[in-house]
């Protein structure tokens, strides 16, 4: 083995080691990244609409009256997206009805999500709901609120700003507390 070849070998070894080092660093980075991630099921993302003006809602309610969100200006509004086929909607409906009966300064506005009107009407009747509910043909209202799956509920302040988004079923105490806090925050 002549000298030049020996030199070549050393250089080649250095090359291999340098590349191995770079790849190693990459793998370390990847491992750290992966190790510090949390499972998807543990993550919640806030809706981008919070603290923004609520998208307009206008249409015909299930009992044939004209309803619009704008006409509720000056009151808290709870916009609730629901469907008769969704199990968590059935879970929360009782609480919603109780809340609507007990609170004077909060109105509830239901929006039907991917359901037949007749089913939605009988669903609301079954729980004795007396708040207006809109049908949402083509799901355009749901789309403007960023609804993925019912039930999803939005609290809108008297000046028409979305205060919070509740994904999944609501409960009475949480609703009451939310309203108190919202009021105390000056809305």
């Amino acid at each position: 083995m002549d000298n030049q070849d020996k030199a070549g070998r050393t250089r080649s070894r250095k090359t291999v080691r340098a590349i191995a080092l770079v790849v190693g660093l990459f793998v370390v980075g990847l491992s750290i990244l992966l190790a510090t991630r949390k499972p998807v099921s543990m993550q919640t993302v806030a809706s981008p609409l919070i603290n923004k003006a609520a998208p307009p809602i206008a249409g015909t309610s299930l009992d044939g009256k004209k309803v619009s969100l704008a006409s509720y200006s000056g009151r808290f509004v709870l916009v609730n997206f629901f469907a008769s086929w969704c199990t968590p909607c059935q879970d929360e409906e009782k609480a919603l009805v109780q809340f609507s009966n007990s609170s004077q300064d909060v109105s509830i506005l239901g929006v039907v999500f991917d359901d037949v009107n007749s089913s939605a009407i009988s669903f609301l009747r079954r729980y004795g709901a007396n708040y207006p509910a809109l049908s949402d043909p083509n799901g355009q209202i749901a789309l403007s609120y960023g609804v993925a799956q019912p039930p999803q509920t939005y609290l809108i302040s008297p000046n028409g700003v979305i205060l919070t988004e509740i994904v999944g079923p609501v409960n009475l105490t949480a609703l009451n507390q939310l309203i108190s806090i919202a009021k105390s925050s000056g809305f």
């Binding site: 099921s41 543990m42 919640t44 949480a174 939310l178 919202a182």
Partner: peptide, 25 residues
């Protein structure tokens, strides 16, 4: 399962920013 630690942390940050409604929820 929900990452409570992270949620609480976010709630505290929101509370500090005065967004009590969000934090409480």
């Amino acid at each position: 399962a929900r990452n409570e630690a992270q949620t609480i942390l976010r709630a505290r940050t929101l509370a500090n920013q005065g967004q009590d409604v969000q934090a409480l929820q």
